[in-house]
């Protein structure tokens, strides 16, 4: 199919850890167990699961930030595992990531302008003047102002930092953005702002999102398709509306039943 931008087949990742008395033994954890997926151009695919389900490992393996034990990843028809270092670096511009923790993912010693410009520098895009323009435009687009370029991350609130994180990823005009729990560290009121911003930017820039979250309420609003992960496996996948209306797997049903206030909120809000 032509409109699939990122796909993966049979991804497997095994973590080995020392165990037993004095760590002489070793045990294996299958963080990813034969995971396949395909992300359509301009669409949002959500990966849902609890901590330890392997969803963050999946994100890292897709972007080749971690070596895989088995499986293949294709981006625009190119097999990422076969690319040389230089080729991979070139492709990386189009595969960006928005991280969960807006406090840990921004370098506290760099100014916001430098953080957002760093990707442009690494990929040698434009000159100093055009870079500054691009950074400024991106920051303004996510709701920050020109004077903010010279501030440090600690001067911003959690929601604003997440905006900086989004600007950092999107200034490169990527094609695929992996959002790893982008709003789970934020208050509900700030969540709504960031989610709407992500949606607007998706339309404007034609982005495809891989959206990782444990919050099914958020996923319902963001995603077109959803994959439910449990202990490294995909237990269910399909269109969001369908999976929510008629969950097939026991674990999915359990997750849906755990949504806080799902009995009362539905009737209460009009």
């Amino acid at each position: 199919m032509a409109d699939i931008i990122l796909s993966a087949q049979g991804l497997t990742k095994i973590y080995r850890q020392r165990s037993g008395r004095f760590g002489f033994g070793s045990s294996q954890i299958k963080a990813l167990d034969n995971v396949s997926l395909s992300l359509k151009q301009g669409a949002t695919l959500a990966v849902v699961g609890e901590s330890g389900s392997g969803k963050s490992t999946l994100a890292r393996c897709l972007l080749q930030l971690q070596p895989l034990d088995a499986g293949e990843v294709q981006f625009e028809g190119r097999e990422l595992g076969r690319l040389t270092g230089t080729e991979l670096r070139g492709v990386r511009r189009h595969l960006q990531m928005v991280f969960q923790d807006p406090f840990a993912s921004l370098n506290p010693r760099m100014k916001v302008g430098e953080i957002v410009a760093e990707g442009l520098l690494i990929h040698k895009l434009g000159n100093a003047t055009t870079r500054r323009d691009q950074v400024l435009r991106m920051l303004q687009r996510v709701g920050l102002a020109a004077p903010d370029m010279d501030k440090y991350p600690h001067e911003f609130s959690g929601g604003q930092r997440q905006r900086i994180g989004i600007a950092r990823a999107l200034v490169l005009e990527p094609k695929v953005v992996v959002c790893d729990e982008p709003v789970s560290a934020l208050d509900v009121s700030i969540q709504a702002q960031i989610l709407l911003l992500l949606k607007e930017l998706q339309l404007e820039m034609g982005l495809s999102y891989l959206f990782i979250s444990h919050d099914l309420r958020v996923v319902r609003h963001m995603a077109d398709e959803v994959m439910v992960m449990h202990r490294g496996r995909i237990v269910e996948q399909g269109e969001v509306a369908q999976v929510y209306a008629d969950p097939q797997h026991e674990y999915t049903r359990n997750l849906l039943n755990s949504i806080p206030g799902h009995h009362r909120m539905a009737t209460a809000t009009t």
Binding site: V188, S189, R217, V218, R220, V240, Y244, I259, R264, A266
Partner: peptide
């Protein structure tokens, strides 16, 4: 409070909670 919030802030706070049915649009405060 849930069914008929009186204060606009309460209403706004309720509106920014995403619902699991995806029926109502997200509204930031």
């Amino acid at each position: 409070i849930l069914v008929c919030p009186q204060h606009p802030y309460t209403r706004a706070l309720l509106d920014c909670v995403p619902d699991a049915e995806g029926l109502k649009p997200l509204k930031p405060i």
